[in-house]
Design a protein around this nucleic acid. Structure first.
Lengths: 347, 347
DNA sequence: TAAATTGATACAATCGATTGTATAAATTTT
DNA sequence: AAAATTTATACAATCGATTGTATCAATTTA
């Protein structure tokens, strides 16, 4: 489509028989321009619905007051909520937020970084894709001097600010809770161990087992059980075991969901036969049957903190900005899916 | 943060003792440049990780191959899925997708349009906010010649392409289904009637009532019951009635959810006492208890169609592009929440 | 009244890349 | 060898806005 020719600053200038520089300053209400001229220019601009061309002004000014948020997939409630938190901070500061999905693909993530790097945004907030094991693309950002903040799934060796929830603590809380509910044989679902969040949750699992002198059983540990389907698959393997576990600590709500739905077909009752906890505190956790015990990750706060760090870095004149790491404490949200106290007291 | 000085085309030019125009052409593999020079320039660009500055090239070329998607809130599964559909079409065509949330606010929506209008994107795909009743901001887009496609919640009087699901048909299907299940006193939840989707669903409700000679009862109709809380509020009013309805046709899954959870506290059983259908086919519908009957809106296909229309319009050289409207047929997904056939056969 | 100051605006460079046209050298044709 | 053509590159304008410096007139000061 052939765009209509634009109405530019020089159109205003010729209508008022003056120069573009005068108009530019008039529209910025510069005291160097007479009040009469300022009003004339502003009126004309309003009349023609004029706004500066984004590309031209950001090219000249060196900033378009835009940040990018790069995340695996926006339809996860956690990520959508982090995004709201980011917007909460960025919008009042006059920054637009550009949202990019990596769709959990390393290639797509690299592509996005390449696309964002050269003048499109002033900084990036990112949670990496599940496939990402190499971080050259992020290091390039830093080399180029583009401010970068990670959240949730971070690149630990990259010198950038990070906002994380204490996954180890979250895992410990969930495990302590299961133990307190009398569970003695606890299975574990997790994700790829090169991703910090899954590694830390799994570490919490093992450490609490150890604390209570419970022998770890590798047949009960699934390190590729994050999606609903994977949770279902893991449960199918569990159902083939001689002895069922009496609990599952899952690193994700969706795999917990898959496990429950799958096991239910086999007649397993939650929490009576198997207590289960998830991770992420998805909205449906509360109205699922049974309501799912989970770990809340303070998504909104994570977003606010990440945006604050990024804007500070962008606006800092200091060449030697020191990356900061903020760790939030998660909350254990106890619901019915994990509560077997009654059982315990009967026994 | 003071950005490191950029590595530009003219840095490459001086390293190779040539001009910027030669480098620009060399990097585009223009046959006007000698093979030797092309290779030298490309090698150097790769070595320095050079990419053209987005602002400069899009300013000059008149396009940054970017489209914007403006929607109320990205954490709704429907919208996130439409977005995936858009990406599916846009990405292979070399377009970046900029995602903007209006947060259901008219003011924020106007702000976004203003922000996007002047050189930031080549076109916009939008579903309007629930507050939006005036469309001047969209008309300005069209006046400026910026391609625009609506989906789902559309501005009916604005001359732009539209992709919609047949909400009237969806409503009719849900209602026919309830009637077929023996429901005789059907309540209805809907949203603001200035929004096409809610108006059409409500029209379907009334028309099917009429078709079966069922007297409409305004005490059973709630036109501000879209969110979970609103659904709960509507249900509370219903519970005060002398005679309960035997079914609810809700224009949204979340208000159906709120109603069920709220009524359950009062001991109401679904579907035995009240059959209920939602709208949107949220993922949790299938694992809710009872699984929720709903209308699938073909979100992914909607996104693909909208993006296709938009790209056609952007790339059309024709000044007189004629807006097109695509209407998709929804699917009724029957689950337990609405099925009372057993009851019916007993009676 | 001449000089100094202030005020208002114009000029021109710049941001970085793209592209039409001009120019110089190399090659081919007559 | 002179003319015509091709090849390779340089020059300069452009996209639209911003900003440092220069200019000119009006006003104030000495």
């Amino acid at each position: 489509m052939v765009p209509k020719k634009k109405y530019t600053i020089s159109d205003i200038a010729s209508e008022l028989n003056t120069s573009t520089s005068t108009i530019s300053r008039a529209l910025q209400d510069s005291p160097r321009i007479s009040l009469k001229m300022r009003k004339a220019a502003q009126d004309l601009a309003r009349k023609h619905n004029y706004e500066p061309d984004f590309r031209a002004s950001s090219l000249r000014k060196g900033s378009g007051r835009t940040i990018a948020v790069m995340l695996p997939k926006i339809d996860r409630h956690y990520f959508a909520t982090v995004l709201s938190g980011i917007d909460e901070v960025a919008a009042p500061a006059g920054y637009s937020v550009l949202i990019c999905q990596s769709f959990e693909s390393y290639e797509k993530e690299k592509q996005l970084v390449k696309n964002l790097m050269h003048g499109r945004v002033d900084g990036i907030i990112s949670s990496i894709s599940i496939e990402t094991k190499k971080f050259r693309h992020f290091e390039q950002l830093i080399t180029k001097g583009l401010p970068l903040v990670f959240f949730d799934r971070v690149c630990e060796n990259v010198k950038a600010s990070k906002v994380m929830v204490d996954d180890y603590l979250g895992a410990s809380m969930a495990m302590e809770h299961l133990v307190a509910n009398g569970c003695k044989r606890i299975a574990h679902f997790s994700g790829p161990q090169h991703i910090n969040v899954y590694r830390n949750r799994t570490k919490g699992y093992y450490d609490i087992l150890k604390k209570y002198n419970m022998e770890p059983d590798e047949a009960l540990v699934f390190k590729d059980a994050i999606t609903r389907d994977e949770g279902c698959g893991a449960m199918q393997k569990i159902l083939l075991l001689d002895q069922l576990p009496d609990a599952i600590f899952s690193s994700g709500d969706y795999s917990a969901l898959g496990a429950i739905l799958c096991a239910r077909k086999a007649g397993i009752k939650f929490p009576e036969q198997i207590a289960i906890t998830g991770f992420a505190n998805e909205p449906w956790d509360s109205f699922f049957d049974p309501p799912l015990t989970s770990i809340d990750q303070h998504a909104f706060e994570t977003g606010k903190q990440a945006a604050t760090l990024l804007l500070q870095q962008i606006e800092s004149k200091d060449e030697s900005f020191v990356p900061r790491t903020i760790v939030l404490s998660p909350d254990l949200i106890i619901r019915k899916s994990s509560q077997r106290k009654k059982l315990k007291s009967i026994l």
